[in-house]
């Protein structure tokens, strides 16, 4: 603690900080109107906004295939899935707004690049099999991340996460079922699935972030219970879950070092090529510019709708007043 401030300030500060920390220590939730350290508030806004933006941008890679889905059944499923991503974005913007930031402001910050989204959505979806593989691997990785976040110390985020997790299960299963269907098809279809898996496996592993020894923020986030497991723990859990799923599907992961380790009871995996990931993170990915440009044009092209709705609401309100 800072020892140069006035004693009574120290006492008051310590009292609220103690209350905050004991709330977390007792596994109780922090709610929006509670006192919280400024750094906690900022971290939560950043974490929730980034997650919200990821859901919103995440509509694009798969939305790419809605008009070309091979059947009405697949199209209806894909529409529902992409609509869910929008819904998840809405739950999360709602949670972020409880901390005093405005939704419109967050959209502006996304478009202007001041707030970020998950780099996984900067990879392209050139093949229809990508729809299935994103559901299975990308949403599978998201589930690994999100299930522990249902116990985040920040109440609104934890509650949003409960809703999201229920729906993610549909996302993963529809993807896996799509791939099973393709694997029962022709050789060409099976090759499409394998080719897509080859492209998505490593980016999925990178979703869990840098290795623990290079993740300096993890300790504070664990103490605040806004992160419940380390990056490497979650990554290992994901690998262990995914390997048997790949075997059941009949595909392989593009990693010659991937093998069962009886001593650890886990699968060992090869070295992640962080250089490639760094290129995508730093803005040089295949789709970075396209994703933001699309979001910007959707926002700007929709401006007249937002204005017209306000004008209509004002007019209706004025009429009601006159009639009364």
């Amino acid at each position: 603690m800072n020892e140069t401030v006035q004693p009574e300030t120290v006492d008051a500060d310590r009292a609220v900080l103690d209350h905050f920390e004991s709330t977390i220590a007792h596994d109780q939730r922090i709610e929006p109107r509670d006192w919280m350290p400024e750094k906690y508030r900022k971290t939560m806004i950043r974490q929730i906004a980034q997650h919200a933006h990821s859901e919103i941008i995440g509509m694009q890679p798969e939305g790419n295939w809605i008009t070309r889905a091979p059947s009405l059944r697949r199209k209806a499923i894909l529409l529902a899935k992409v609509q869910d991503e929008a819904g998840h974005g809405m739950y999360l913007y709602s949670a972020a707004e409880t901390l005093g930031i405005d939704r419109g402001e967050m959209t502006e910050m996304l478009i202007s690049g001041r707030q970020k989204y998950s780099s996984i959505f900067n990879y392209p979806t050139p093949s229809y099999a990508d729809v299935g593989v994103i559901g299975w691997l990308v949403d599978g990785a998201a589930i690994c991340n999100q299930v522990p976040l249902c116990r985040s110390s920040f109440g609104p985020y934890a509650r949003a996460m409960v809703r999201i997790c229920k729906e993610e299960s549909f996302h993963q299963r529809q993807g896996y079922e799509l791939l099973m269907t393709m694997m029962r098809g022709t050789d060409t279809q099976r090759e499409m699935v394998q080719e897509s898996v080859n492209r998505w496996w490593w980016p999925s592993l990178m979703m869990f972030g840098p290795p623990d020894e290079q993740s300096p923020n993890t300790e504070q986030s664990m103490a605040w219970k806004i992160k419940r497991h380390t990056n490497d723990e979650l990554r290992q859990r994901y690998v262990d879950m995914s390997v048997p799923q790949a075997e059941a599907l009949g595909v392989t992961f593009p990693d010659p070092e991937l093998r069962w380790n009886a001593a650890t009871g886990h699968y060992d995996y090869g070295q992640i090529d962080w250089d490639d990931f760094n290129r995508v993170v730093s803005g040089d990915g295949p789709c970075n510019a396209e994703r933001i440009e699309h979001r910007r044009s959707a926002h700007e092209d929709g401006a007249w709708v937002r204005e017209a709705a306000i004008a209509y609401a004002d007019k209706q309100a004025a009429r009601t007043k006159t009639a009364a």
Binding site: S119, F208, N278
Partner: peptide
């Protein structure tokens, strides 16, 4: 240059 925060994992810092 990046951290893992929030449900969709790694984002640029």
């Amino acid at each position: 240059s990046f951290t893992a925060e929030g449900g969709h994992g790694a984002v640029p810092t």
